[in-house]
Design a protein around this nucleic acid. Structure first.
Length: 767
RNA sequence: GCCGGGGUGGCGGAACUGGUAGACGCGCCGGACUCAAAAUCCGGUUCUGGCAACAGAGUGCGAGUUCGAUUCUCGCUCCCGGCACCA
């Protein structure tokens, strides 16, 4: 049902834009690699490929029944070699540019199943199948250098007015550009100096300890002669790779019995090993300022480390850092020569001092890390690399692409079957020709989903990743997807767009001009999922109520970006409305053809209905075209339908007004309920179908009104409603308001202090 | 823990730029039709008091700004999404 929701939203927008006269391309494809197919293969004993292709066929049939207006000639399937060969190709190009590289990085290792686990497969620190405590393990993996584009990815957000602010803020924070200084603390006893990065050099005089990662050489060395430290380091390995696990676990540490030297005071600063410092991020060492950093404060308090204050609030108020860290900027105290400087001045002074002495430098840091694309899994696109004992890791030559993933395999779930297939992994070195070994890891499936949208422009191109047709269609005008993609998918897609641009394949800097993030489909307050067993099968609903009822309910129940609560009764309600809609048209058509509206000779009731018709056209156009609020568009159409039911049509001019109203509803709802609209449009006497019609236009003359209702408040409380002429001036309106009996009751003889008149809306009398 | 979003009748939601809180739908109540039921149609439906007119209260909790706050500001609370190997 989640898919039904996204695709209905997109289809409504596509059909609406088409009726605006635009040239619309709405494609569909299958993001088909990934863990679900492997899991299904384990459970059902069928190869992932078979299961995948079967599902694609089923789902394609269902989409056709739902009436989505796709150009099926452009269908793309990411697990086909014709598709993934091009990301393999791009990867080899990036290899030559130095934008991909290999380094060690951490994975979740299940020591019992002897396999790498996804974060999702780790439950409370244990493997989902073995129940063994998961360990951190470093293995060599391939990375794409997304950090080389960090600044452009950050600055580009300012050029995306069609994106929700919340998504842009999340991406900004994720990239996390910060300016700080990198400086060095010498370590007593001739050990390697500790290099640290800080964004708060103004708090340098408040450093009371240092902390290093468990894998840091200083910790490893200390463990050699101290069994307790060795045990602690062992314990630190039993943390899963996910950042959330790291941040929520109990912060633990031990003193290493080693001191660093404070670079200004020369004082000894104790060095600790801590489980929350990571070797792989930054330098593996941090300076701690417990007086002015919350995490440092927590740690210092639990381990009885000193907390000193070196910043005071600029407004002169007093604080006590023993009660909690003070994190804002302020004025320096207890800082020797720096006393009295502001945080900003101290930043510059400290930076200048270290740069002059050659012991540190100003540095820009990013929270964003390079993208690890290696997966130790079978059902993914092979990474096109060959390892030669003599020549090292080399990209597969272009004329040998694609590296095809064998589809007919036995899949047991333990390790990748590719590792047991010599016919796959045996290869010749592209450089020296000697026997070599092919990479058996596959790409992260985010690689496929990072560029598929461009491929729709030239899905049949066998000579290039993208051809000139890309320039006609890209960038995507309207992209729709779940908020859960706000960071990863959307950032990787933006990154790939820049890679493809720099490869000369595209002229666009950004892939998606307008972004709509839609909410989940819930049932009983929880996300619908097979795991929870609370799914609803679209197929059954289509059979019982028809596709239009399903589409209508999806659009009517909630605004697109909000979570939608599934309701069987709500579906019934949508079905009821469509029946009323049908009956209204049918009853009207029984009376034979209608003449056109003669606007000049309408009575009051006819004018009212006609005004409602044109108000509805105005409202629905705005709701679909500008606001993407399909739920209120549907509500407006229902209101007009209710007005038609109340209107007693007798004369020919009555019937003309009703005909106009019904035609409006048919066209306005046609993007949402295309099948029924098609039928009703024909019954109303038209030869063409709504998909070929233009969107209805508002007649401003029909909206005109003589009198308008205004609310009268006394001291902000509603006391009366009055009817005034639309062109009445403020004096006239407030005179009428004060003349009202109920208003008089509340004003009585109290003096009137002020009267606020908002024309067309309200009068507020302040007494 | 950090980043982002949300909390409005019995329920889904509306109120777009600070100006009538509860549009529209569901459910429920009453009526019509029917032998009866379903379906359909008509009327009612935030809570409290009142026959009614009307009055009082009310948008997670607490404060603030304003003639006026669901809307803006500050603090709190609960729920949802993301946290780099679910996609």
């Amino acid at each position: 049902m989640g898919h039904v929701r996204v695709f209905t939203i997109s289809d409504v927008i596509a059909r609406y834009q088409r009726m605006q006269g635009r040239h619309v391309l709405q494609p569909m494809g299958w993001d088909a690699f990934g863990m679900p197919a492997e899991n299904a293969a384990i459970q059902r004993g069928i190869p992932p490929a078979q299961w995948t292709y079967r599902n694609i066929d089923y789902m394609r049939g269902q989409m056709k029944r739902l009436g989505y207006g796709y150009d099926w000639r452009r269908e793309v399937t990411t697990c086909r070699p014709e598709y993934y060969r091009w990301e393999q190709w791009l990867f080899t190009r990036l290899f030559k540019k130095g934008l991909v590289y290999r380094k060690n990085s951490v994975v979740n290792w299940d020591p019992v199943d002897q396999t790498v686990l996804a974060n999702e497969q780790v439950i409370d620190g244990r493997g989902w199948r073995s129940d063994a405590l998961v360990e951190r393990r470093e293995i060599p993996q391939w990375f794409m250098r997304i950090t080389a584009y960090a600044d452009e990815l950050l600055d580009g957000l300012d050029k995306l007015p069609g994106w929700p602010e919340s998504v842009k803020v999340m991406q900004r924070n994720w990239i996390g550009r910060s300016e700080g200084i990198e400086l060095v603390f010498d370590v007593a006893g001739g050990a390697e100096p500790l290099s640290v990065y800080t964004t708060r050099p103004d708090t340098l005089m408040g450093v009371t300890y240092m902390a290093v990662a468990a894998e840091h050489p200083l910790a490893t060395k200390a463990a050699e002669s101290d069994a307790d430290i060795a045990r602690f380091l062992e314990e630190c390995r039993k943390i899963q790779a996910a950042e959330a696990a790291l941040e929520t676990m109990e912060k633990k540490g031990m003193p290493l019995g080693v001191s660093a030297t404070h670079p200004i005071t020369g004082d000894d600063v104790p060095v600790w090993v801590a489980n929350f410092v990571l070797m792989s991020y930054g330098t593996g060492a941090v300076m701690a300022v417990p007086g002015h950093d919350e995490r440092d404060w927590e740690f210092a308090t639990t381990h009885d480390l000193p907390v000193t204050q070196v910043i005071r609030p600029a407004d002169g108020s007093t604080i006590d850092v023993q009660e909690g860290a003070y994190t804002p900027h302020g004025i320096l105290i207890n800082s020797g020569d720096y006393d009295g400087l502001t945080s900003a001045e101290a930043f510059d002074a400290v930076a200048a001092r270290f740069e002059k002495e050659g012991r540190g430098k100003r540095t820009v840091h990013y929270r964003l890390r390079d993208w690890g694309v290696s997966r130790q899994r079978y059902w993914g696109a092979p990474i096109p690399i060959i390892y030669c004992d003599d020549c090292g890791a080399l990209p597969v030559p272009e004329d040998q692409l694609p590296v095809v993933l064998p589809e007919n395999v036995e899949f047991s779930g333990v390790g990748s079957p590719l590792k047991d297939m010599p016919e796959f992994y045996e290869a010749d070195c592209p450089q020296c020709g000697k026997a070599a070994r092919r990479e058996t890891d596959t790409f992260d499936t985010f690689v496929e989903s990072s560029w598929y949208f461009s491929r729709y422009a030239s899905p049949d191109s066998n000579d290039a990743m993208l051809d000139s047709r890309e320039h006609y269609w890209m960038p995507v005008d309207q992209y729709t997807g779940g908020v859960e993609h706000a960071i990863l998918h959307l950032l990787y897609a933006r990154f790939f767009q820049k890679l493809m641009r720099d490869e000369g394949l595209s002229a666009a800097d950004e892939p998606f001009t307008n972004l709509l993030t839609q909410g989940m489909v819930l049932k009983d307050g929880a996300k619908m999922s097979k795991a929870k067993g609370n799914t609803v099968d679209p197929q059954q609903l289509i059979e019982r109520y028809g596709a239009d009822t399903v589409r209508l309910f999806m659009m009517a129940a909630a605004p697109p970006e909000q979570a939608l609560e599934w309701s069987d009764d709500g579906v019934q309600g949508s079905f009821r409305f469509l029946n009323r809609f049908f009956k209204a048209v049918h009853a009207h058509c029984e009376g034979g053809p209608s003449a056109g509206v003669d606007a000049a000779s309408l009575n009051a009731e006819q004018k009212d209905l006609r005004r409602k018709t044109h108000q509805t056209i105005e409202k629905v156009s705005d709701d679909i075209g500008r606001r993407y609020k399909f739920n209120t568009a549907v509500a407006a159409a229902m209101e007009l339908m209710n007005a038609i039911y109340k209107f007693e049509a007798g004369s020919a001019s009555d019937r003309a007004v009703v005909q106009e109203a019904l035609e409006a509803i048919v066209l306005l709802l046609s993007p949402i309920v295309p099948h029924l609209s098609h039928e009703l449009w024909e019954r109303l006497g038209h030869k063409t179908a709504p998909v070929y019609e233009r969107w209805p236009a508002v007649d401003p003359a029909a909206l005109a009104q003589d009198m308008v209702e205004i609310v009268v408040q006394v001291n902000g409380k509603l006391r009366a409603r009055i009817s005034v002429a639309v062109d009445a001036d403020k004096d006239a309106i407030s005179k009428l308001a004060l003349a009202d009996d109920n208003v008089q009751r509340f004003v009585a003889d109290k003096p009137i202090r002020k009267t606020i008149v908002v024309p067309g809306r309200l009068v507020n009398v302040v007494v």
